[in-house]
Nucleic acid binder design. Structure first.
Length: 601
RNA sequence: GCGCCCGUAGCUCAGCUGGAUAGAGCAUCGGCCUUCUAAGCCGAGGGUCGUGGGUUCGAGUCCCGCCGGGCGCGCCA
């Protein structure tokens, strides 16, 4: 519907240009939007103000109105208003056809054809360390990443959802050592954990599993034998638990990509060689690095902190690299080490190799969903990709801000080290997957917010997600009721213009306008990687529907007037389809039926 | 100290990349179930959009300063 208004405006402007009344190169970017006030018409357009850039906006508006070209004759009237708005009113049939459009599109409504953009997109999200379960700290990024992937899929991209497994390095080694201690404990040995090892109970479970599998065969073996085995069983079991939790949350990944495999395949080594060949590295024997203000930062404080470590190594010019013009465009604060003095790579080195691999695998866009605590990592990867000659537009970061978890007004601290975990699985058991997902998606991604466990778990009846789902269930219920009463909706193929012509109430037209917007909402939310726009869109639409439903109880949808009933049932069916499409993009269930919970005493 | 994010109703948050009289949910108060589900609807109260400048036809939205809060600033991953 919005497109039709655009067509009218574009046609009019081109006609004015052809007649010499107006001069312009290209039509500037103008908006066609739903006005808040009904007296401002069906659609409002700011093109006169955008094009006039000043005084004569009202004159230009008049000119457009006088010379209006209406190719599909869909316009009833255009008025000039305020500082130069054009307020359009459209014929009823334009609204009514929205119903048939939606019903014909079915589950595809609101979406572009699958993979129609030809763009390969990877969304990397969760990527929780395989050293423990998924906890509440991961929840926001998990639901956000999942929703972004769904959104990009709906927008017609070829989406791969990926989980990067950090199964290499010190942390998994520590896990392995903890697992082995717990394993020995199973045979009656008294053990003590040292600082940094994982005290939580799940490690004991892993040890039990291991014992059941291999018996005592690792008890008196050298470290070289038990450590790799303990790491293997530890990461495997944790990953199994992570996958189970994600499944519970209705979150799926297509690929689990192992960091260790990058080391094994030589990809990590080879990226260092690539950087060296491009001349963007240097050796610093004393552990000194440069930052982009051309100072040499002293590593003394760090040397004190890591006194046991030999400083120096190979640095990547993530800050000080200069382009042909001698400028330093990279945003990192200082150059980063990629090979330690002993020649071993660091975490960043592997991550750079991983990101390079993403583009080598043919992705046109890589979206990384991180927690804000990884913000410092972003410029390093951006710089690293730039130094490979990869267009920075092909890599986008979504940083979800920290979530404060509160219960009874007190903050719940999450710490894997201290063993005080609040697992996502437990939260889902308490509150339900849809409720959790909804609460995390309601907020724009870069606002921090407080997650009140009391509100979610105790008052789930009042949770906003039910408002949404009830809207869908109400549509389903009406259609079901109509069938029971012997006047079922005739269906998308048999609904006629005569039926639809009975949709004339202002509330009905408003809903049809909004329904027609879903494709725009999805496309723009996908562009911006912001799922919450879809959610707020649903809220408005459902609010309109509930109000309509209640207001016209005396003139109900199902009435003796067969024609009107069919028209209204078609609207309800279209609305139901719209909500179902939107819910699918958000990843929440669209129930056919909902019962009010029993009143609490 | 430096970098990033945030500041909108009592609380939690939207505000469609600059548009018309700033919105929703929760909470409070008052109404609405003999007829398609009351997990719903209608109404009321509640705002110097942190603050001071700037940009322009027009600013919650863009720019600069300040105030307040969060996160980051390992050769951990």
């Amino acid at each position: 519907m919005r497109q039709q208004v655009r067509q009218v405006i574009d046609a009019t402007l081109h006609a004015l240009k052809a007649s010499g009344a107006l001069t312009f190169d290209t039509i500037p970017n103008y908006a066609v939007e739903l006005p808040k006030k009904l007296e401002h018409g069906d659609w409002a357009c700011n093109v006169a103000m955008v094009m006039s850039k000043g005084r004569n906006a009202p004159e230009l508006a008049d000119l457009i109105i006088k010379n209006l070209v209406d190719p599909h004759s869909s316009v009833v009237s255009v008025e000039k208003a305020g500082p130069g708005f054009l307020n359009f009113r459209l014929k009823d049939i334009v609204f009514q056809r929205v119903v048939t459009e939606v019903l014909k599109a079915g589950v595809q409504f609101g979406r572009r054809a699958p993979k129609s953009t030809g763009k390969k997109v990877m969304v990397e999200f969760v990527s929780a360390n395989p050293t423990g379960p998924v906890h509440i700290g991961h929840a926001r990024g998990a639901f956000m990443g999942d929703a972004i992937a769904r959104l990009l899929d709906a927008a017609g991209h070829d989406v791969t959802r990926e989980f990067y497994i950090n199964d290499f390095g010190k942390q998994v080694e520590t896990l392995g050592r903890t697992v082995y201690k717990r394993y020995r404990e199973q045979f009656g040995e008294a053990i003590t954990l040292v600082e940094g090892e994982y005290p939580a109970e799940y490690v004991i479970d892993i040890a039990k599993t291991w014992k059941a599998e291999v018996g005592d065969s690792f008890l008196n073996k050298p470290e070289a034998e038990w450590l790799p085995a303990a790491i293997e069983v530890g990461t495997r079991e944790n990953l199994k638990a992570i996958k189970a939790t994600l499944a519970k949350a209705n979150i799926t990944h297509d690929v689990f990509f192992s960091e260790a495999s990058l080391h094994a395949s030589g990809a990590v080594r080879s990226i260092v060689d690539v950087y060296k060949a491009r001349g963007v590295t240097y050796e610093a024997t004393e552990g000194k690095r440069k930052d982009n203000k051309e100072k040499v930062r002293d590593a003394e404080s760090k040397a004190a902190k890591y006194a046991d470590r030999q400083l120096g190594g190979t640095f990547l010019m993530t800050a000080t690299w200069q382009d042909e013009k001698g400028k330093t465009p990279l945003k990192d604060e200082e150059d980063r080490i990629i090979l330690r003095a002993d020649g071993t790579p660091v975490y960043l080195t592997a991550d750079l190799a991983y990101h390079k691999a993403k583009f080598d695998r043919g992705f046109d866009l890589a979206v990384d969903v991180f927690g804000a605590d990884h913000a410092g990592h972003v410029p390093r990867i951006q710089s690293g990709m730039h130094l490979l000659g990869i267009d920075s537009k092909k890599l986008e970061f979504v940083l979800v801000q920290i979530v404060r978890i509160t219960r009874g007004g007190e903050e719940v601290k999450v710490s894997k080290r201290k063993g005080t975990l609040f697992e996502l699985a437990d939260l889902i058991d308490e509150a339900g997957a849809d409720v959790c997902r909804f609460i995390f998606l309601m907020k724009t991604r870069d606002a921090q917010f407080d997650f009140d466990l009391d509100a979610v778990t105790k008052q789930s009846k009042d949770n906003p997600v039910f408002y949404f789902q009830y809207g869908h269930a109400r549509c389903a219920s009406i259609l079901k009721k109509a069938a029971e009463k012997g006047v079922p909706f005739v269906g998308a193929d048999k609904v006629t213009d005569a039926h639809l012509a009975r949709l004339v109430l202002p509330e009905e037209k408003m809903m049809l306008k909004k329904i027609s917007q879903l494709p725009d909402v999805v496309a723009s939310a996908a562009d911006r990687l912001e799922p919450h726009h879809v959610l707020y869109y649903c809220q408005e639409l459902i609010g309109d529907f509930h109000a309509y439903y209640t207001q016209y109880k005396s003139d109900p949808i199902i009435s003796d007037d067969a024609e009107k009933t069919q028209g209204r049932l078609a609207l309800v069916a279209a609305l139901k389809q719209t909500l179902q499409s939107a819910f699918k993009i958000l990843g929440i269930d669209a129930p056919e039926h909902m019962e009010a919970p029993p009143e609490e005493a």
